[in-house]
Design a protein around this nucleic acid. Sequence first.
DNA 1: AGCCTTTGACCAGCG
DNA 2: TCGCTGGTCAAAGGC
Length: 494
Amino acid sequence: MAEKEEQEQQQKQPLSLKSSAGASSRPTISLPPRPFGEMFFSGGVGFSPGPMTLVSNLFSDPDELKTFSQLLAGAMASPAAAAVAAAAVVATAHQTSVSSAVGSGGDVDPRFKQNRPTGLMITQPPGMFTVPPGLSPATLLDSPSFFGLFSPVQGSFGMTHQQALAQVTAQAVHSNSVQSQSEDPSSTQPEQQTSLTEPPSFQDLSQAQRDTMEVSVYEHRLSQPQTADKPADDGYNWRKYGQKQVKGSDFPRSYYKCTHPACPVKKKVERSRDGQVTEIIYKGQHSHEPPQNKTKRDNNGSSRSSDVATQFQTSNSGHNKNKRDQETSQVTTGTEQMCEASDSEEVGNAETSVEPDPKRRNMEVRVTEPVTSTQRTVTEPRIIVQTTSEVDLLDDGFRWRKYGQKVVKGNLYPRSYYKCTTQGCGVRKHVERAASDPKAVVTTYEGKHNHDVPASRNSSHQLRPNNNLHNTSTVNLNQEQPVARLRLKEEKIT
DNA sequence: AGCCTTTGACCAGCG
DNA sequence: TCGCTGGTCAAAGGC
């Protein structure tokens, strides 16, 4: 008897795994409706400014950014990455179609490295991407439906990344729309149909459309469960307006409303028996920016933490009949597996990364995100996919492989992340376009090369970082070009 | 004083 | 229609 109870208790632990769609109590936390790109890419880079600065003008073309096709190609190199790409595309596209709403968070928490989320599962809303358990991402990629979804993108070279995303969005939304209509033939969703050609951003939507649009973003919390009275601080102010003991839960469910006047956003917070937050479901779109002066109350780092969104769901108020189901159903990619925390530097650092773990082939993908605390509005969601094929040739003498990029606060341009391709060398650098001048870039090095410049490139390198430099300096390499900086940072990479 | 949480009651959807 | 369940309201109290 006691043993049974113990088993039950174990099953109710936040990290326990259950199937979704009603039966699921997989620990999920849904993010507030905010740009997926931001959720993926903002905050907590993990790098800190290094000591030396140097001028360079390595990118003259703002389109250095990877195209969607490139991202897709990169993703296809790795099944796991492919899954992440798919999920990211869907999520991003979905976000694009629904909202350009603001994000949440605050300042970067330096404790993030300790508290960073460590894993999550990418899931998709019904009618969008559904990868049945047992179907590997690679299989997915081979499936006609997958490329059916992406075909407009692949067949649209020359279009912008955002346009590509828009088309994917259209496909996804259409798919969702079709499903919804099949469930409720009497209702139509003209605005979504319209989005087939040009998905409207949240700003583009009429107020009525905004009001009827709901977005829930599910997020899995794999570590740092919320044990405080309040759930994760997501940058907004909430007022609890109700609490209910729900069936099948040992802990009551709490209901919160955004305290901002006229803001319709609500969230539900569920906890496990031990008080840990196991699920937060957001509903609605914030009609305002997060309060900038919001008090940070995280003394232990538990607040301010947010994990990567793993599931997007949309519903239309016209379908309230099915709203509950839509809100609670969760379709996940791959098996119902939860990955434990990983201390992988690659995973744990700032950007989204992918860890193709053969043991978790059917597990979606592991993607991590730093504690998000930056607050900004992302106008163009971007995708970060770890690519394996691209070798960056930024000519500092070393060979680099680009493994991600993201948009950072205050800069319209993403910065890109590179790793030294030499085996065993953990040096990384990130290159960002200067906010003040897109022609200038800031390159930050992290770590110390444990090898010499590759012989084949010895003669060509221009900006080789001095591994032993500790000073900071700025060098203007080109009087005609804006000053960019190369920061060198020497620190132990753990 | 203002904002928040608590909590019992009420309401609506569903089977 | 009734009971169950989840969601919300609103008064009371605390900080």
